[in-house]
Simulated scan of single mutants.
Amino acid sequence: MRRKRIYEGKAKVLFEGPEPGTLVQYFKDDATAFNNQKKGTITGKGVLNNRISEYLMMRLESIGVPTHFVRRLNMREQLVREVEIIPLEVVVRNVAAGSLSKRLGIEEGTALPRSIVEYYLKNDALGDPLVTEEHITCFNWAGPQDLDEMMQMALRVNDFLTGLFLGVGIKLVDFKLEFGRLWEEDQMRIVLADEISPDSCRLWDIKTNEKLDKDRFRRDLGKVEEAYQEIARRLGVLPEAGPLDMQGPKVMQ
């Protein structure tokens, strides 16, 4: 039976779910950077991101952060609640890197005096521009109360993930979150949506500052698959996959 495709993004496909109010989120191996100007494939990325995101979403649920995640279905798919995505990317930064370094001339790797939360409008055609709370409330992308909730949740996620990654020798440099409105009868609540994976985080080895995330693809650093596998290995979620699923990943010692 063919499933109804609801939406296809750069890294995932959403299909109609088995019951009302659910979707099936399928993780692709496709990789893009610089607002889709650079494209490629990272073998097994979808399998690894599915596992990593499942693990992190479940850990966040366990400390009371509401998410759209329900359960993992198979190697590449997970069941999620259907939400109305808020058209913003919420970026939390702990260390200067990427666009922040370029925009403000701060050397990459500089620890920030405190965590910074930034908002970007989800719009590929415009290059996902940086926006302020004034823009967001003026154009009604989210209300002041929504923003307060998203900010509080983002900082809570940052505190938790910083400690979790520190425990496995990884520095959480920065990461991107997306949120959605979950409607249950007449009640609406903001929940964490999308994914948390090396696609959406900058993760550096704490001793060597080696990049273990999508920057390896963006910057042609090589060993991209190995970096994603290393994150899964350190988190203890490296799949026991066959060659059809992963095309033979090698566990790094």
Rank of each mutant, 00 (worst) to 15 (best):
E226Y: 10
F175L: 08
D205A: 04
V173G: 00
E8R: 12
E84K: 15
A97S: 15
W141R: 13
L172S: 04
P66I: 12
I196L: 05
E134M: 08
F179A: 06
V157F: 13
N36M: 09
M150W: 09
H135I: 09
G40L: 14
Q229A: 12
L126Q: 04
P243Y: 01
G105Y: 08
G109C: 08
L23M: 12
E54K: 14
E16G: 03
D29Y: 11
E107V: 11
S99D: 09
P18L: 14
N158S: 15
K214P: 05
F179H: 10
Y120L: 14
L23A: 04
G222I: 12
L56A: 00
D29C: 07
P20W: 00
E210K: 13
I42W: 05
F179P: 03
R114G: 04
T208Q: 10
I116V: 15
L161N: 06
K207Y: 08
M252F: 04
V92F: 11
N49Y: 07
G127T: 03
F160Q: 05
G40R: 11
V80Q: 02
F165V: 04
L23T: 04
I6V: 08
M58N: 09
E82Q: 15
K10A: 07
K10C: 01
K12D: 01
A193K: 00
A111F: 09
T137H: 10
V13R: 14
L203V: 01
D220N: 15
I86E: 05
K10D: 01
A154G: 03
L56M: 04
L238Q: 07
I85T: 12
G46Q: 13
Q152R: 15
V168H: 02
A142Q: 04
G105K: 08
G98F: 07
E54C: 08
V90P: 05
L166C: 02
G143Q: 06
Q37N: 13
R2H: 05
L147P: 11
F160P: 01
V65E: 06
V191D: 00
I6P: 00
Q152V: 07
W204P: 07
Q25C: 15
E118D: 10
G248L: 12
V191E: 00
